Computed example of a mutant assay.
Amino acid sequence: MNKCVPLAVIKQFGNEFPGIYNRCEDVDGDVSFTSKDLQTILSHGTDMQDYWSTVEVIKTCHLWRKFKQEYRFDPDLEEMILEQDSLMDSKLPTKVLESIPFQSVFVQTSRFAVKGLNAFAGFFATVHKSQNKNRLFFCPVYASGNVCGILGIEFSDLTLGETIKMTFDNYQNMLKDNGVKDEKAADESYYSDMCRMMNQMLQLLLYICAANTEKEADPEHEKMFHPAKGKIRDQYKEVKIWNVGKETGAIIRNMKHSTGSRHSVAHTGSHTPKRTHIRKGHYHHYWKGPRKGERQLILNWVAPTIINGASEDIPLTITKIGNV
């Protein structure tokens, strides 16, 4: 049985703050700390910034245990997605994130890592709703089991790149307005690490949001899957496990084998021969529906394209262009 990381996390916080999820339910999702809870937080030597993070992480745990959705990426597909161009300057509308299939999901990863930081086991992505604006909050989980809460992205009419920049700017202004001194926030290398972390989580989440995402319920786990009805018991059988990109991953491995085993190059007329290479995948969006009526924003993942490949090297789901 694979370790269910999100289930371990919510149990960890449930043990550290007994009864916290029931109290969240009583106050409609807000976190209601007892004096004993506050003493527990203070015992860790946390400052106000860490207090806010703890509040957001507990909100995330509270929501995830209601849906219990876990997505497990094929390693090769995950690697390919993470190698795509950064989203920090993306022109995609932020509204594409509204296609997240559940209010809270957990994405288990094997490739997600940021230089200078420990490897990650995955992350929560949760929509925290409020009267003013809804916000997508990320909660990475380290391979060691430690959990951290980082910036949330507000749903807006801006592009994704603009929204990410605004998120980081607002964070720094908030610290300043509240008199919190965060040397990390002003550190360029730390800022870059946070940007890379945000980019990698968004890359994987967007694939899950795409209309053409490849996923299937894990066949072995489906034999025992039994969603909670009434009282939530936080058992493994209550978790819905999705395998993401199983067939696509197999195609990628076949493509790597076939192109890697060839030493010949493709000739394009009288020009210098060019080796087979791959154009990176990316996301494409369009609007569906009448121009003057209600329209739906559709997001699709465009698979990488093999350039100058031999015909037998081209997987059926990847389009070949260029001369042979």
Rank of each mutant, 00 (worst) to 15 (best):
Y142R: 12
N308T: 09
I150K: 15
N173I: 05
G179P: 00
T159G: 15
E183A: 15
A185T: 15
K59H: 13
W64R: 12
N146M: 10
K3Y: 03
T248W: 15
P18K: 02
K115Q: 08
K176W: 00
E78I: 10
M1S: 09
K246P: 04
D37R: 10
T213Q: 15
K292N: 11
A8C: 11
G249N: 02
T213K: 15
G260K: 11
A121G: 12
V105S: 14
F33W: 02
K165T: 14
I58W: 05
V27N: 05
K3L: 11
H62P: 00
L206H: 08
Y283H: 14
I58S: 00
V31D: 08
A266V: 08
D313Y: 01
G322W: 03
P6Q: 02
E220Q: 11
K288I: 02
C61I: 02
D313M: 12
D157R: 15
L7G: 10
K237T: 05
L158C: 13
H62F: 11
S43E: 01
V324A: 06
F73I: 01
I252R: 05
F168S: 04
V9D: 11
I306P: 14
K229I: 05
R65P: 07
L97P: 01
V31S: 08
N243F: 03
T317Q: 06
N323V: 14
S110H: 06
E247L: 01
G289W: 11
I306D: 06
V180W: 08
K11L: 08
K184I: 01
H282Q: 08
E154A: 14
G289L: 11
H62L: 08
V107Y: 03
L206K: 01
T167M: 13
P101F: 03
E222Y: 09
H285N: 06
M174N: 13
D30W: 11
M224D: 08
D182N: 03
S99P: 00
G230S: 10
C195A: 10
G289A: 15
E56T: 05
T40W: 06
F138V: 06
M194G: 13
P227G: 04
L87T: 07
S189H: 10
N323W: 02
L42E: 09
I20N: 01
N323C: 14
P93D: 04
C139D: 11
T126L: 05
Y286L: 07
V114D: 07
M224W: 04
Y21M: 02
L63K: 13
P6H: 00
M48T: 13
V265L: 15
P18Q: 02
R275V: 06
C24L: 02
Y236P: 01
Q172A: 01
C4F: 04
N173F: 05
E154T: 13
G116E: 04
E83S: 14
